[in-house]
Computed example of a mutant assay.
Amino acid sequence: MSTLWKRALATTTIALVAGLGLTACGTGGNDTTDTKDKGGQSQTETAPEAASGTMTADDFVQRINDAQYEAGSSHFVQTMDVQGQKIETTGDVVVDEDPSKVKMAMTMAGGVELRMVDGELYLNMGEVTGGKFYQAPKDGSNPMVEQLNSSVGQANIGQQLEAFKTALKDFKAEEGAETIDGVETTKYTLTLDTKKLFEAQKIEVPEGADIGDTIEYEMFVGSDDLPRRIVMDIAGTAMNMEFSKWGEDVTIEAPPADQITDTMPGA
């Protein structure tokens, strides 16, 4: 697998963890399908009530996480500029206060696909894995997938809250900044201490990456406290991530047994 794709995958997972505060995906039940539905009603019909007032440096992490848990799911489209190349990633994520119920599926150009279900990470690297999914080991035997596994799965809500509180150096809010997908948003600019953020989240820096002293996030958030856009630059990679379809039904499944291979990507 090329360094370009490794970097793109690592940046994507780091962005999802660090930018959204996703919970850990620990081992849980055997259900490999998750459709968000409460009491027979779709999440769209039971959207979280709008929170009052602009978020502050003290409450923004808690409010954003609470809103995500209430919505339960989201679709995202991410565009990255990696080594002069534009890479687009699309996917869906299911968030839950129960770590065992957190799920994610995302795809990139070139047949690269990642799924996270019930604490297991599956990687389809196209030709590298014969078009099948490699189930990442949890014993650290593959450094590349261990990096991705760590990026996705080693944070929990308590660690996220402490990470942001510890790493936050500056916080600014600009009301009525932009209307995104019909939603008026407030732009929050967060300056975070890179080293403290990564250490708190147990994220290892990709080899050779210059992550800089600080990371600046521009988060565009609706009055319901749900992110609509995140703009950031991490390790020299410019990234724009758009979020939509909050609370819509999402089904994410583990690959069937005949689509799983022992071929190790990046070995």
Results as ranks from 00 to 15, higher is better:
M1K: 01
W5K: 11
T11D: 15
T12F: 04
T12A: 12
T13K: 12
A18F: 06
A24T: 07
A24D: 15
G26R: 11
T27Y: 08
T27K: 09
G29C: 01
N30P: 07
K36W: 03
G40M: 11
T56D: 01
D58W: 00
D59M: 04
D59C: 06
F60I: 05
V61W: 02
R63I: 00
R63H: 07
A67T: 03
Q68G: 07
A71M: 06
A71F: 03
S74R: 12
H75T: 14
V77K: 12
Q78A: 05
T79C: 09
T79H: 11
Q83K: 01
Q83I: 07
G91T: 03
V93A: 15
E97P: 08
E97S: 09
D98L: 04
K101T: 04
V102K: 11
M104Q: 11
M104P: 09
T107S: 13
T107N: 07
T107Q: 10
M116Q: 11
M116G: 09
L121P: 13
L121M: 07
Y122T: 09
L123V: 08
L123A: 10
N124W: 01
N124C: 00
N124Y: 00
N124M: 02
G126W: 00
V128T: 11
G130M: 00
Y134I: 02
Q135K: 14
A136L: 06
K138A: 13
K138V: 12
N142D: 08
N149F: 09
S150A: 13
S151G: 12
A155Q: 09
N156H: 06
Q160A: 03
E162V: 09
F164L: 10
F164R: 09
F164I: 10
K165T: 09
K165P: 10
T166Q: 14
A167W: 11
A167T: 12
K172T: 08
K172F: 05
E175R: 04
G176D: 09
G176V: 01
A177R: 03
T179V: 08
V183L: 04
V183N: 05
E184C: 04
T185L: 01
T191I: 11
K195V: 06
A200C: 08
K202N: 13
K202F: 06
P206Y: 14
G208V: 14
A209H: 10
A209T: 14
G212M: 07
D213G: 15
D213R: 15
I215K: 09
E216W: 02
F220N: 15
V221W: 05
G222H: 02
G222A: 03
L226D: 05
R229G: 02
R229H: 05
I230Q: 06
M232D: 10
I234Y: 14
I234E: 12
A235R: 05
T237S: 03
N240Q: 15
N240H: 07
F243I: 05
K245Y: 10
W246K: 04
V250T: 13
I252T: 06
P255D: 14
P256Q: 05
Q259S: 10
Q259L: 05
D262R: 04
D262E: 14
P265Q: 00
